[in-house]
Amino acid sequence: MDVLIHFFVGLHIIGIAALLGGFLTQMKAIGQGTARFVPGMLHGALTMLVTGVALVGLHQAHGYPVNTVKIGVKLALLIVILGLVYVKRDEERIDKGLFGLVGLLTTVNIFIAVLWT
């Protein structure tokens, strides 16, 4: 069971890398006002959602403790990120503030995962 949990943690990290990497590749475009949500950002957010739900289920099935408040906060942030990226995915230009919000929420989600024990 631990191998399966580690596998899903790896996939979860790949998802967040795709989301944050998509954001970071658009940094120059943000300054020019031509930033857009690339498909990798949507796929990364969806990967995070699916693997995160699977991780919670696997942890509960194995009897490991689950911090439901932490998971709830992370899920709420991810739903906001996913909603913004999904709704604005076809637009050629995204407002700087909105694009920055997605990057900020993604970074906050990472720090919650790492620092909240």
Rank of each mutant, 00 (worst) to 15 (best):
R93S: 14
Q32I: 08
N109V: 00
A18C: 09
V80H: 03
K74I: 03
F8V: 07
L49A: 13
T106R: 03
A76M: 08
I30R: 10
F99Q: 09
G52P: 04
A18T: 05
T106Q: 03
Q26T: 09
I81W: 01
F23D: 06
G10C: 02
H62W: 02
V69F: 12
L84T: 00
R89A: 03
L42G: 05
L42N: 01
G57Y: 09
V38C: 07
L11I: 15
A61R: 02
V56Q: 09
V108P: 03
A29E: 15
T34N: 15
V9N: 01
I14W: 02
H59D: 09
A45L: 03
R89K: 13
V38G: 02
L58E: 00
N67P: 05
V69A: 14
K74T: 05
Q32S: 12
I5R: 10
L20D: 08
I81Y: 02
I110G: 08
R93Q: 14
K88S: 04
V9A: 01
L82T: 06
N109R: 00
T47M: 14
G97F: 09
E92T: 12
A54E: 08
F99C: 10
G15Y: 01
M41R: 03
V85I: 09
Q26S: 11
G21R: 00
K70Q: 11
M1E: 10
L105A: 08
A76Q: 08
G97L: 11
L20A: 13
R93I: 10
Q60D: 09
I94Q: 04
G10S: 04
L115R: 08
F8T: 08
L104H: 03
L115Y: 14
L77S: 00
A17M: 13
I5K: 10
M41D: 03
I14D: 08
F23V: 14
T51R: 01
L42C: 00
L55C: 08
G100Y: 13
L77G: 00
V69R: 12
G103T: 13
Y64T: 01
H59G: 10
I112A: 07
K96T: 10
L77P: 04
F111Y: 13
G31Q: 10
T107D: 04
G10I: 05
L104R: 04
F8Q: 01
Q60E: 11
Y64E: 06
L42W: 05
L11T: 11
Y64R: 08
L101D: 13
V53Q: 04
A29D: 14
D95S: 13
K88G: 00
A29Q: 13
G31W: 12
F111V: 15
H6M: 11
L78Q: 00
G97I: 06
G15D: 04
I30Y: 05
H6R: 15
I13G: 07
I13V: 14
